[in-house]
């Protein structure tokens, strides 16, 4: 195996076009290295992009936030911009692995590995994340929803590099959050992860809903059937709509074929209620 350390995006896409499907990008290495050591991956080349400065940094231009592919989980969890405008993402990043993992694991890695349990993906989905891809033949912009095709399977081409992620900030009368259920309090994959973003009109009508899940057999995904139940409802109404959404989410994760799936369905009902209450409590006047 060849180890290629690249210093620029241009060098990276050169190597990618050279190695094609035989090359594997190495960023934080928290996913790639264990897979390699277990013999599950044996690429001909490891292309180490961790030294590319251009993939670092969080910037804000014209109301859109761009997060570099090499931004670490620890950075996402602690950056005040992320905490303020993308609290679900900050919360998700803080729940990845443990402190040590978060210090090296990157956002780009979490996206491109596309694990079914990837914590940041539901949070990115509710922020309508757009991915900036680059290859030798040019640039491409794809929504995260389109990119995720299945657990560990993406629409990313073998010669493409993820450069940055653009996310849409939380509105003024909005709230969001991410909750994770895992077997242990750290260093564990999500049995289920749930992100919710809500926007509410001044009169208390839910005008925007995004709900996304990770942890099942599928890749992280939005749940439109659950979103539509909530859209347009009055927050101070007396219908137990949160309960209905929870039921819908439980249905959406598919049949309970394994004990774990059964548990996931059970948890989702109460979990959505918990997250929704937490979010609505943050919207001024919404709970009155």
């Amino acid at each position: 195996m060849q180890f290629c350390r690249v210093r620029s995006v241009a060098e990276a896409v050169d190597e990618l076009s050279r190695w094609g499907t035989e090359g594997r990008i190495l960023a934080g290495g928290t996913d790639v290295m264990p897979q390699y050591l277990r013999g599950e991956q044996s690429p001909a080349a490891l292309i180490d992009i961790s030294g590319i400065d251009g993939l670092q940094g969080i910037s804000e231009v014209g109301g859109v936030t761009s997060i570099g592919a090499l931004v670490t989980m620890r950075r996402l969890a602690t950056a005040s911009l992320v905490q303020l405008r993308y609290p679900a993402l900050a919360q998700a990043a803080a729940l990845v692995g443990a402190w040590q993992t978060q210090t090296v694991a990157t956002l780009g890695g979490n996206i491109c590995s596309a694990a079914a349990t990837a914590d940041t993906l539901p949070a990115l989905l509710v922020a309508d994340a757009q991915l900036m891809l680059v290859s030798k033949s040019g640039r491409r912009r794809v929504s995260l929803e389109e990119l995720l095709e299945g657990p560990g399977v993406t629409a990313l081409r073998p010669t493409e590099l993820l450069r940055a992620v653009e996310v849409e900030p939380l509105g003024e009368r909005g709230a969001e959050g991410y909750v994770k259920v895992s077997r242990r309090s750290a260093m564990d994959l999500a049995v289920v992860g749930l992100a919710l973003r809500l926007s509410v009109t001044p009169s208390g009508v839910i005008s925007g809903v995004r709900i996304a899940l990770c942890g099942g057999a599928r890749a992280a995904h939005r749940v439109p059937t659950a979103e539509s139940l909530l859209l347009g409802s009055q927050l101070s109404g007396d219908i137990d709509v949160f309960g209905a959404v929870g039921e819908e989410l439980a249905r959406a994760v598919g049949p309970a074929v394994s004990p774990e799936a059964h548990y996931r369905r059970r948890v989702l009902r109460g979990l959505f209620d918990r997250l929704a209450r937490r979010c609505t409590a943050q919207i001024p006047g919404a709970s009155g």
Binding site: S236, G237, D238, D240, D273, R277
Partner: peptide
């Protein structure tokens, strides 16, 4: 309260579950 379909958006009492 929840079973009675009461106002669900009410923040729960602390540690209510």
């Amino acid at each position: 309260q929840r079973d009675a379909g009461a106002r669900t958006s009410q923040p729960a009492e602390s540690d209510a579950d």
